[in-house]
Design a protein around this nucleic acid. Sequence first.
DNA 1: TCCCTTATTGCAACTTATTTGCAATAATTA
DNA 2: TAATTATTGCAAATAAGTTGCAATAAGGGA
Lengths: 137, 137
Amino acid sequence: MPTWEETLSQAGCRITEPRRAVMTVLAQAERSLVPQEIFALGIKLHATLSLVTVYRTLELFEELSLVRRVHQDDKCHGYLLTAAGHRHVLVCEGCGRAVEFPGQDDLVALIARVEECTGYQVEAHLLQLVGVCPHCQ
Amino acid sequence: MPTWEETLSQAGCRITEPRRAVMTVLAQAERSLVPQEIFALGIKLHATLSLVTVYRTLELFEELSLVRRVHQDDKCHGYLLTAAGHRHVLVCEGCGRAVEFPGQDDLVALIARVEECTGYQVEAHLLQLVGVCPHCQ
DNA sequence: TCCCTTATTGCAACTTATTTGCAATAATTA
DNA sequence: TAATTATTGCAAATAAGTTGCAATAAGGGA
């Protein structure tokens, strides 16, 4: 598994201080963060960081699958570092802390059935769980 | 199953032209619509409809579970009329057409397993499928 | 049916979120 | 180290959603 720096280089992108700051913030976060939050934390690491750059960096990172967006009922668009092999997220409604879990298999049967019933061809799925984490219980 | 008018009345809310327009638009839509779209269609039914009212109406309808929000990769917050008993949506990435499907059972096992692994208490889930509908294939 | 109460509406202004153009800056490659 | 060009940050524009408030209209009761 390549490092994020390698992923960036291979895509012909540069490794810069702002990007490093965003990545560090996300790596240290134990919950999903919105751009504003990433900016607020990131500026401590790179004093001239701008919010615009945070947006652009997140867009790039998402294209490269380095981060993923998580959807929440109210605020869409929290960002989370992508963990290898994991595709689903469980977000705590109390503190926003997030854990990832595998769980492809359970969906395969479901998706096959839905495809048959509806005639749709299913290309992707969005599965997120919302709950209360051990800390918040 | 009560009509939406009954649901509104029982909640102490009034049945107004703007609300009727929003409901009609959603009932006739075969895909999820964003507030702007609902406004554009709704103004044909009620000439003085305003976008502000659309937002407020959608908020109310969502509280009363008359409509549901659907999330999409890019644009969050499309709205869809709630069908009874159905909790999941399959959205066509071509035209936005949406169908609903049941599918609780498959998730029960998955959720139980995730709860055990993570220590989280799962309260809700967001499952949406994205695919290509028969029309668009 | 008309009146009265009060929920609802629409306007205008505001806040928040996100995007874009562009000149200055800094990362890489030779 | 110099040259090339991706990237940055500013400022301004755009988009999305919210709020205060006076005017309006729904619906219960006389």
